[in-house]
Design a protein around this nucleic acid. Structure first.
Length: 156
DNA sequence: GCCAACGTTGGC
DNA sequence: GCCAACGTTGGC
């Protein structure tokens, strides 16, 4: 099983929004980046992912979700009314994928980007690299455990 | 709100 | 296939 990180702007879709969904499950749609899409296609049922809030006052890992449905065509790419509509994607050969995620837990103590940047054990983690704009990325088992162990740490 | 970094597009 | 222009991301 693998570990991942999923970015979302909380003003768009927050972990609290996920908690309110039926069965606390939602499709992770709207990804329009090939690298991110390719990572999503590698996801297996039961994989775990961090839910990360980006573009907000304190960017942070705020929870854990699990993959409950593997990659399938993202319906928003065919919806003209949807902001993620892609006129170049043909239903016979869909360009974009989504997965379904279910909430596992909301962290009582979110782990901020600043704290992760300060942790030398995470220096290779894609999220802390300068200019990282990837919205879906892999997390190694070591990185996963390092980040989880930072819960409740005092400084930062 | 600013702006650096990045991915995509399209002319050539 | 190059690369300048453009749009987007996301930290600050």
């Amino acid at each position: 099983m693998s570990y991942w990180l999923l970015k979302s702007e909380p003003s768009c879709f927050s972990i609290e929004d996920l908690a309110k969904r039926k069965a606390q499950t939602e499709l992770w749609d709207g990804v329009r980046n090939y690298q991110a899409r390719n990572f999503m296609r590698q996801m297996k049922i039961g994989d775990l992912a961090f839910f990360y809030h980006s573009n907000t006052q304190i960017p942070a890992v705020v929870g854990v979700v699990k993959i409950v449905r593997e990659a399938y065509p993202d319906p928003t790419q065919f919806n003209v009314a949807d902001p993620h509509f892609d006129p170049k994607s043909h239903p016979a050969n869909p360009r974009w994928s989504c997965v379904d995620v279910q909430l596992v837990e909301i962290l009582k103590n979110p782990i901020s980007l600043a704290a992760m940047k300060n942790n030398e054990a995470l220096s290779d983690f894609a999220l802390v690299q300068k200019g990282c704009r990837l919205s879906v990325m892999p997390v190694s088992q070591t990185q996963w455990q390092t980040i989880l162990s930072m819960q409740g740490a005092s400084g930062g």
